[in-house]
Amino acid sequence: MTLLNQVFDIYIDLNITLALTAVVWLTVKLSMARFGRRLAFTVQLGLLNGLFAVIILSPAVVAVYQHLLVVEMVPAALSINLADYAVSQYLRGGIALPAEDFQALLGLRSRFTESILTMTPGLGLGIALFLIAGFIGFGTRLVINFVRLNRMLSTCHDWRRNGRVQLLLSDRAIVPFSARGLIRHYVVVPSELLAKPDDLKLVLKHEFQHLRQGDVAWEIGLELLRPFFFWNPFFYVWKSEVERLRELACDQKVAEHSQVDLKAYCMCLLRAAQAGLRKRQAQTARDRVGNVASVALLEVQDRLLRRSPAQKLRRRVEALLETNRLRPHWGLACLAVLPMIAVILLISMSIQKPADWSQDRLMLSAIVNLERLETINSFGQRPLR
């Protein structure tokens, strides 16, 4: 059970870290927008992906740091833990609570975790079954979408190949999209685009830019993590932000090309949206392909609790016309993001479960025992007349 407890603690810590980091990111973004300072979409996307990688790797960093504390390569004074800080403040009189109540509050997470892992009847059993059912459900959906995508790729017509990139023509694809396997990258183009060479050229530029940015690989990673974070609303906030910046960054890079006419590119997006909507209405549900492992030119399917495709398309066209975006040097951008990385690691280290037996906790335990002893002794005293 010890290993299971450790794994579940890491899982909870990752969810908390993701939630707090999402709040920090949105706060910084809104603050910059308020002061009229907006980074280029490509820079924002790179920073967002980098921060997510830091979140996923944070448990390993924390484990290394705690090991350095144990072997005393890092001074004990540099230990960062909210629970230990709370105990220290309590012993200094900064928290006005009975010692037994304060100790019970500190052990709330441990008791909650234990009730879930042991499936204690009641709340613990309910949460455990919810997590298991969600993981199985979203995991099954993930497999089904991969199978559907593979089936879609198998029905496409081979058009051209260039190294590991394979161009495919499809009679069923609603809109152009990019996908990848273990080795090959795929760009799927609706067959009717062959009759529109100007639009086809812009579409290929867009999809090749997705491949250069590694957007498909990031999409695969996020979808593989969905069964684990399905219950966390901040995961969907983060994923929605990545999807938004991914398309805006791709549009921005394509529009920066000297040979691309901005008006023609916007009209290409509009025509693709119209064609996609017509095709979606004509096709049955079994012909639709999930977005797993693929990145489409644009979205033409409504999604619950997200902005409509029309709103997203309008936002993309408006963003193409904006010129007040800062394009800082990547060195400066990395330097600016260092505080956010520090915040992520600080959050990860501070929410860790503390050591069971520290000097402060022994003192707290002694205070609790003294209060209990005083309560027991008070029962044997005669009431004052």
Score class of each variant (00 low, 15 high):
131 L>F: 06
303 R>H: 10
333 A>Y: 06
45 L>H: 04
253 K>I: 12
153 L>E: 08
96 A>E: 10
23 V>A: 08
212 R>P: 10
57 L>R: 03
332 L>G: 11
375 T>V: 13
196 K>P: 12
5 N>D: 13
5 N>Y: 09
159 W>M: 12
144 I>S: 07
54 V>Y: 01
377 N>P: 09
384 L>R: 15
364 L>T: 01
139 G>M: 05
168 L>N: 08
376 I>K: 08
145 N>I: 00
223 E>Q: 14
243 E>G: 08
382 R>F: 11
330 W>A: 04
148 R>F: 00
369 N>Q: 15
247 E>D: 12
135 F>E: 11
5 N>E: 15
25 W>S: 07
304 L>Q: 08
289 V>D: 13
48 L>N: 01
313 L>V: 13
372 R>H: 10
91 L>F: 05
316 R>F: 00
247 E>V: 11
237 V>G: 03
372 R>A: 11
10 I>P: 02
140 T>G: 09
350 S>C: 02
55 I>Q: 09
71 V>K: 03
187 V>P: 06
216 V>Y: 01
186 Y>M: 04
2 T>N: 12
80 I>S: 07
156 C>T: 15
314 R>K: 12
106 L>F: 02
97 L>R: 03
109 R>M: 05
152 M>V: 09
93 G>L: 02
23 V>L: 11
353 K>V: 09
153 L>I: 15
145 N>R: 10
112 F>M: 12
383 P>A: 15
233 P>R: 01
98 P>C: 00
164 R>E: 15
371 E>H: 08
59 P>S: 05
36 G>V: 10
304 L>R: 07
104 A>M: 06
123 L>I: 11
12 I>K: 05
74 V>D: 01
308 S>A: 13
184 R>Q: 15
311 Q>K: 09
85 Y>W: 13
249 A>D: 00
356 D>K: 12
26 L>G: 07
384 L>E: 14
313 L>T: 13
194 L>W: 02
270 L>H: 03
269 L>W: 03
347 I>W: 02
245 L>Y: 04
309 P>G: 08
338 L>D: 04
334 C>I: 14
72 E>Q: 13
168 L>I: 13
162 N>C: 10
354 P>L: 00
232 N>I: 07
126 G>R: 08
